[in-house]
Computed example of a mutant assay.
Amino acid sequence: MNTATDTTAVSMPARRTIGGREIAAVLIWLGLLLAPLWLPALGGYMNLASRVLIYAMVATGLNLLLGYTGGLSFGHAAYFGLGAYGTGLFLIHVSNSLPLAILAGTLLGGLAGILVGPMVMRRKGIYFSMITIAFGQMFYFIAVRWNSLTGGEDGLTGFSRVPLHFGSTTVDLGATNFYYLVLGLFALVMLIVWQILRSPMGHTFVATRENPMRLRFLGVAVDRQIWAAFAISTFIAALAGSLNALLTSFASPDNLGWQLSGSFVVICVLGGMRSFWGPFLGAIIYVAAQDYLSSATQNWMTFIGLIFVLAVLFFPDGLLGFLKGRTRS
């Protein structure tokens, strides 16, 4: 009798308990879905929330390269800006179809990343960072000099968000509806990155960061792994840039500059480079601080730099890493 009972107990599958991470993820998504209800009470507005998600999106893509694969890129704003220009030019010269415009911007920036990837994947350390800056500045000067197409230093204008059409139904993309469009694409990006990190490819990215020499001994093409991470991250950056152009109805050469690339790196470091939700937390801190400080003082970049220095000194694993450490202790 006891033997049968023991056998039954062994054969029963173990129940999986819901942990703190799952609860936190549910609360985050619930908070994002209900943002139009609680954000105005805190003095926020929906365009600010959209900008947080857009910056979190591009930082999540960069984190796939920086935090998980170990490649420090200071040129990711180039693909962000190409996505913005691609979407704006498509709306001006080709069609008023918003989904196709977003697709065009994403493909322009992503394909540029695929082409640049083989030229950066064999570089290591500071040389990797420097060549990403070089390509980023190349795209920046093309945007500045090609006045007839890009508007030069004045930027690209003459386009705006157009309504979405679903058969006979038309959805006007005001601030709230556009926020939900951005939220849907942000959720898609987070799902893709989550699946990549759980896949053999994601484990190979981490192994590339930790011990590339051992991977080479095992016959893994490490350079191609870096290329893959770089290309995926540029597609995500281009998608974010496309949405940013629709948010502001404007594409500027500053969207391609190394200063903005540095801001994306700061966002990753603030939140936690090797954390899935780190870039999202970093984007909240950065965008909220930028919005408040820029309205209070012209020297707001000084305070942003101070926040970054304090974060590096006291939270070397990012704020999310610090919170996880306190939870374990």
Rank of each mutant, 00 (worst) to 15 (best):
Y292T: 12
G44F: 02
R274G: 14
L185A: 02
L306W: 07
S73H: 04
V182L: 01
Q225V: 13
I54L: 01
T150P: 04
A41F: 11
S50F: 07
T87A: 05
G219D: 03
V269C: 08
A84C: 06
A238W: 04
I226V: 15
F280R: 11
M46E: 01
L98M: 15
I284D: 03
G202F: 07
L247H: 07
T302Q: 07
L32D: 00
G174D: 09
V220A: 06
W227S: 14
Q259W: 12
V189W: 06
V162F: 03
L91P: 02
L111P: 00
T87L: 01
V94Q: 06
A237V: 10
L281Q: 07
M201T: 15
A288I: 15
G81W: 03
G241C: 02
S294W: 01
W194K: 14
T17N: 08
I285T: 09
T176A: 00
L243E: 09
L115I: 13
L39G: 04
A14H: 09
F141L: 14
L111W: 01
G325K: 15
G71F: 07
G67H: 09
M121W: 06
V193G: 08
A112P: 03
G151Y: 10
L260C: 04
L310R: 06
G158V: 02
F74C: 10
A311R: 05
F303S: 11
G272L: 07
F303T: 12
R51K: 13
G155H: 02
G151W: 08
A9G: 13
L256R: 05
Q195K: 15
N211Y: 09
L48A: 01
P36Y: 00
Y45S: 05
T106M: 00
L48C: 00
N299V: 10
L183C: 07
F128P: 13
L260Y: 08
G152N: 04
T327M: 15
M12G: 10
L32S: 00
G257T: 10
A240I: 01
L53G: 05
I192W: 11
A4S: 14
V189H: 05
Q298F: 11
Y140E: 12
V144R: 11
N211C: 04
F315M: 12
W277R: 11
G272H: 09
A49P: 05
G155D: 02
M121C: 06
L260K: 08
L39V: 14
F166M: 06
P99Q: 01
M301S: 10
T204N: 09
K324L: 12
D154C: 01
R326S: 09
L270M: 05
L27N: 00
G86N: 07
P40I: 06
G174K: 03
R145D: 15
L42M: 08
I232V: 15
G325T: 14
G117I: 03
N2W: 09
Y55W: 12
L32N: 00
T234A: 11
I133C: 02
G70N: 12
A207T: 02
W277D: 10
F128H: 12
W29M: 03
G262Y: 08
